[in-house]
Simulated scan of single mutants.
Amino acid sequence: MLKDTFLSLLSNYSNNNSLHNILWEEIAHNYSNEQRYYHTLEHLESLLVQLTEVKDKINHWDTILFTLFYHDVIYNSLKSTNEEKSADLAVKRMQQLHVPKPIIEDCKNQILATKTHKLSEDSDTNYFIDTDLSVLGKSWEIYSQYYKNVRKEYAIYPNLIYNPGRKKALTHFLDMDKIFKTEYFYQKFEKTARENIQREIELL
């Protein structure tokens, strides 16, 4: 499903099938890195399913798809510039495909928005951010597997360093007026997300 969606997306802008396959292999390779436990192809698959459920609410579907595939394409738990580097690579690849500049710019902004999760004036950006955070509002079983996988990605850090940082990040969400910016995801996940986050904080 992921590969077919990606190749179909690229075919809207380029006839270079060889390039399309090279770019897919780059996506697959990056998201399959052995140091990734949460930011994986499975994560992309989950987001694609959920975005498809709200496709009728999305104004620019192609832009959202480019954002989906590239938002975590660069991921290093030791760095704080993953979003910027992912956005830069997305821009570079979309330019190779001759994607129109407005789509490239919107995609770049959406990827950068995943760093702060702030309310955006662009509704598509809000839908993407909400989808990216949807795991927070899933069942405790799914949520607990998520936070354990995130911990594995930061395995280099001892609890003495990791736990305060994680608690700060989680508290950041609880301090928000709304974790989820769209009405659809707010109604679906907000209550459970806050319960899950509070529960994890108590376990740290």
Rank of each mutant, 00 (worst) to 15 (best):
A155N: 11
N159K: 08
T63Y: 01
I58F: 01
F6S: 04
Y157N: 08
I58A: 03
A113Y: 05
Y186T: 04
R36C: 06
L2K: 10
L44T: 01
L119N: 11
E26H: 12
Y186D: 09
P102G: 06
P164M: 02
H43M: 07
V54N: 04
L160R: 08
L136Q: 09
P102Y: 01
R199N: 12
T192G: 00
H60E: 15
L47G: 11
E83S: 08
K92F: 09
L7A: 01
M176W: 02
E121Q: 14
I74Q: 13
N196K: 07
K168D: 08
N76I: 13
F6A: 01
E34N: 15
R166V: 08
D122W: 10
Q187M: 11
V135A: 05
N16Q: 05
P100N: 01
N16R: 06
N109T: 02
L51S: 03
A155W: 11
N159I: 02
A87G: 11
I74G: 02
W24P: 00
D122G: 01
Q145D: 15
L2S: 08
W61R: 07
K85Q: 15
V91S: 08
F180T: 00
L133F: 01
L65R: 02
A155F: 13
N126F: 09
K3Y: 00
A87V: 04
Y157V: 11
A28D: 12
S80I: 13
P158R: 03
A169D: 09
F128G: 10
L78K: 15
A193F: 05
Y75C: 06
T114C: 01
S14R: 02
E200R: 11
Y13S: 03
D106T: 09
T116H: 14
I58Q: 00
L89S: 11
E84H: 13
D175A: 08
K115I: 06
W61C: 04
N33Q: 10
F128M: 06
I129D: 02
P100Q: 00
A87F: 09
K168W: 09
P164I: 07
I103L: 13
R151K: 14
D4N: 14
F128P: 13
Y186W: 13
S18H: 13
L2M: 06
Q110E: 10
D4S: 15
N109F: 03
A169I: 09
Y13Q: 04
N12Q: 14
E190T: 03
N16S: 06
Q198I: 10
G137N: 03
L9Y: 01
K178V: 03
Y147E: 14
N109S: 15
K148T: 14
E200C: 10
D106R: 15
I201Q: 06
H39A: 03
L44G: 08
L9C: 07
L19V: 05
L68H: 09
S134A: 15
L10K: 03
E45H: 05
I161W: 14
N76W: 05
I197K: 09
D177F: 05
L136G: 03
Y184G: 00
A90Y: 02
K191M: 06
D124M: 04
L170D: 04
Q110R: 10
M176E: 11
L51N: 10
Y143M: 05
S11Q: 14
E84R: 12
K168L: 12
Q187S: 14
D124L: 05
Q145Y: 10
R36H: 15
E153Y: 06
T52Q: 13
R151N: 12
Y146M: 06
T5N: 12
N33Y: 09
A28L: 04
E45T: 07
